[in-house]
Design a protein around this nucleic acid. Sequence first.
DNA 1: CCCAAGAGAGAAAACGTTTACTCGACCATT
DNA 2: AATGGTCGAGTAAACGTTTTCTCTCTTGGG
Lengths: 340, 340
Amino acid sequence: MAEPITIKDIANLCGVSIATVSRVVNNSPKGVGEKTVERIRKVIEEVGYRPNRLAQSMITKVTHTIGLVIPDVRNPFFSELVRGVEDVCNENGYSCFLCNTDGKLDKENEYIDILRDRVVDGLLFTTQNDKEFNPAFLDFHKNRTPLCFIERYVDELPETPGVFFDNEGGAALLTQFVLDKGHRHIAFVSGPLSTMNARMRKSGFMATMQNNGVEVDDRLVVEGNYKLDSGYAAVDQLLAPGKPKFTALIAGNDLMALGAYQALVERGYEVPNDISIAGFDNITYPAVFRPLITTIEIPGYKLGSCGTQMLIAQMKGQPLAVTRQVFAAALRDKGSIIQI
Amino acid sequence: MAEPITIKDIANLCGVSIATVSRVVNNSPKGVGEKTVERIRKVIEEVGYRPNRLAQSMITKVTHTIGLVIPDVRNPFFSELVRGVEDVCNENGYSCFLCNTDGKLDKENEYIDILRDRVVDGLLFTTQNDKEFNPAFLDFHKNRTPLCFIERYVDELPETPGVFFDNEGGAALLTQFVLDKGHRHIAFVSGPLSTMNARMRKSGFMATMQNNGVEVDDRLVVEGNYKLDSGYAAVDQLLAPGKPKFTALIAGNDLMALGAYQALVERGYEVPNDISIAGFDNITYPAVFRPLITTIEIPGYKLGSCGTQMLIAQMKGQPLAVTRQVFAAALRDKGSIIQI
DNA sequence: CCCAAGAGAGAAAACGTTTACTCGACCATT
DNA sequence: AATGGTCGAGTAAACGTTTTCTCTCTTGGG
């Protein structure tokens, strides 16, 4: 029913041209008398006129809109991240399109196309799929649409900004902690080695062991898939006859650590008295829950907010001091590693 | 660098008018010869032309965009809901602006204005704040912008669609379950009674008790704020000298149930042997965690996806069979209520 | 008193589409 | 042979802004 009020309506109401109204709306440098400004302001206020963003964007080519592409909001890490992104967007007058891809390449492609059609000013991109490189990024790059990666290195686009978590450092920190507690026989359950972060975490573990002069027993290093079940299964493998004993187990993420915990308990081991356990991610649950798992915290909110800041800086044409920001890891000791 | 390809480019490339190109892009009824269609299609394909959504929207007044306003994505209920919304949007060619308000009225207002400026086709609105009614909704209503509420009744807008969870029925289900286990002295810790759902849950509890001929002892009904601490504090109140004994405690949500659990354990009670506990929400954590709390599941994804379907139906001008959809509750028995 | 400069404001083009209207060509019907 | 219908395609207006250019009026300095 009620047609929206346009700039033309205001112009008529004030008996001025739309150009003049436009100038006061954008409190443009000058060219409008004080009294006129006052009058127009008042009318705008009274009738509640708000400029149509679409029309503005048509001509300015700027939508104040970004696309946020992630695998799944339901993953707590990503909901933290999303909130960080959205907060920074909002502070800066941007709105954010949320896209869930489940890490599937075709959905990623689809969303990239959609977002380009919608003329987003920038794109924030996360995935857990780092096997395949999406050539659509090259298009974005050619079109000079700002891009910021989250936890993803793209060799083809070396100068594209990104925010990262220091997976290797986190794993090193955790491994050192376990070593310092006196453990020497440490099992490691990695995430899927097809992913960058699983490889980094593993290498952080290996390097730290080596640096401390502790030999890694290959038979105690197994690969999981970041899911609970694979942690459970890993314990079965590690406890098989002929395998060496171990006093601590480091998992590539908390979920696998929990799976491992369950398997150990079911097999009659006491955690941490018989076997200590550590995870990665700091999946945060109300502190009432048991077990508590010593872990490495990944600052999802921070990654999101800083990534967005970098993206916005780019969109504003500000030169970036650093194009790749790496966030340090923090250890969360929850007592699941005992001194021996 | 690379200016985007426009319809004009395609027209020139094919030696036809832009109107003709537009017709084949929208595979418009007729008016273009088969051979021409073929030729234009091929060129479009070759150069990868994609129409500018902004320009399309300018003229059609349709953006294929919706606004999703929620308190906080980090709340697992809302991340479920968001995913449901986004999936249905995507299936139907819509994109979705995510807005976090923390339930604050001024942020809600701000986002409503922003979304209107951006000419969203519809608005999906959730809040936990049901004290204040935002008059901006009336504007939306006047502008005929489709609206769908989630878990919020708005008296001023009786015919506005909404999706709801049957809080009362859920509480009844849970209460009946507890009664059937033989409990007669049941404590109830409600959420903040300023919120609709806390009131509904409480009334579901009261009604079921009454229906079963069990008198509710007022001294065993306390009000919390849906946070962990308030569950803890509630137990302090309930265990104060002079209070009647109880064998079961039903909390307005899982978080408070956990707080209550912690308080009880710290005071030497065994759960559920001394006191049984039930919650609400089914906050889902890996099943390894303890304690497990018998609870009522709220189908967040379902609420989101169905709400979005209703919204889209409205936007397409389809008449809604029902404007208010209520989703049934389901009990998740996790053993924290014992038979007595 | 004249002129230049500057301030205030409007006209119109542009952004990339969709769509109502128009027009010519061709063919079939009377 | 004239009429009319259909098909294919183009012209131009429109959407709601921003912005460049232009114009007029005022003002102040010489």
